[in-house]
Design a binder for these strands. Sequence first.
DNA 1: CTAGGATCCTGTCAGC
DNA 2: TGCTGACAGGATCCTA
Length: 300
Amino acid sequence: MPELPEVETVRRGLSELIVGRRVLAVEALNDKSFEYVGASDEDLIGAKVTEIRRRGKVLIIDLSSGCSLVGHLKMTGQMVFRGGSDWAAGHPTDSFVGELPDRSTRVMFELSARPKEANFSGAKLFFNDQRKFGWIKLMPTAQVEDLPFLQKMGPEPFWETAESEFLRNIRRHPRSLVKAAILDQTVMAGIGNIYADESLWAAKVHPATRVGDLSDRQLRQIFQAARAVMTKSIESGGSTMKNYIRADGTRGDYLEKFANVFRREGQACRRCGTTIEKIRVAGRGTHICPKCQHPPTAKA
DNA sequence: CTAGGATCCTGTCAGC
DNA sequence: TGCTGACAGGATCCTA
């Protein structure tokens, strides 16, 4: 699930809540969810959280020990903080608000009080992940950038050079379907299934179009749309506990606030009124307006 | 080298 | 009700 805007929301939330705290204890309830890479518990227990960074969909929690906790939420990961103020972000589920740990909890961190924190009664950070695809690795901070996945990663959408890098990278996949190409993290960092569909709808490009059949102008429009929709999502706060629970107590969906096509099949296109369809492209569920987004066989 | 499909895992939902 | 298969906000590994 979590794509760039959601991971950024996690980063901002955790920055407020855990920077300055020390790690008192860690418990991995699923071995594959927590891995030591050239580091041990000695690099974790007692270390203070100094900064929290993000690269694409990867979260990087720097510690005073010279090591970092590097995490990927994949499809169903979420971070939940409990202690004083409660907070949660990532893939929205009832684990945002239920008692923890629960059956989706994979790793738990016990954290210290901050200086001058009044009435401290414990602080815990939970990494929950229903499908167990996500992971957290403890490793030396200096080695984080050498992770193959980060080495190959394309530009952040907000970098100055992002548009030209995106164009150069995506042109290396002329036979790919454009949806598959923009989901490729080596082309551009941070896009996932939601923002891929939203970007292509905004750029009026059909997701099954081959990259080689698109003009530079169309590719630029896709890039601009992706950056715009992700910016808007970050500003609206991604998916957090706060917007998961409606005022009346029922469960809401933060997509309601900005999605034009994603999970809107059967509803009217906000641009032309045509019924949104759900199809399958590049092995992923894909939402389109069949009128705005011309099929690949038609001349664009 | 690129492109496409299977795969990792749990949970839910539609259809029989 | 109970079973079965499809599918899910991701990325890697394997094959052609």
